[in-house]
Amino acid sequence: MSFKNTYIGTIVYAVKSLATGMKVTLCEFFTRKVTEHYPENRKTLKISDRHRGVLVMPHDDEGNNKCIACGLCQMTCPNGTISITTKSVTDEETGKSKKVLVEYNYDLGACMFCQLCVNACPKGAIEFSNEFENAVFDRKKLVLKLNK
C-alpha cells in the first residue's frame, strides 16, 4: 500500500495540501484589491459604447429627429415594446397626405435589447445609448416618450 494511504501518509498529505491552500489565500490577503468603487468612480467610469442601456432618438439642435413614422420598428419588435401614434398631414405643394409622427412611446420595462428595431430602421432614427442608470420606483415612469 503506497505511503500516501498509510495512517501517517494521509496526515502528511492532508497537512501539505491544506498548507498550500492557505499560502494562496495569504498571498491574496496582501495583493491589491480588484473592486471598482462604482458610485465614487461615476465620472471616470468607461462603459463600452456598444452597451445597450436604453433606446434614444437623437435630435439635432433645432429639435427635429429623423423618424418618418414608418412603423417598421414597431413591427419587428418581438414583444410589442414600441408604440407609435401618427397622424396624416396633407402636404401643401404636392397635396398628398403624409404620415407625421405624433408620439413615440417606448416601454423600457418590457424591452429585451435585441437591437432588431435599430437594424430595421431605414433612417437610423433610433439607437441604443449606454446610459444604465434607469432604476425607478414607479412602473409608469419606465414608459418613455422618445420624440421631443
Partner: peptide, 10 residues
C-alpha cells in the same frame, strides 16, 4: 424596478 435584460451590475 431595475430595467435591463439583464441589467449591468452597476
Amino acid at each position: 424596478y431595475i430595467p435591463g435584460c439583464p441589467p449591468r451590475p452597476e
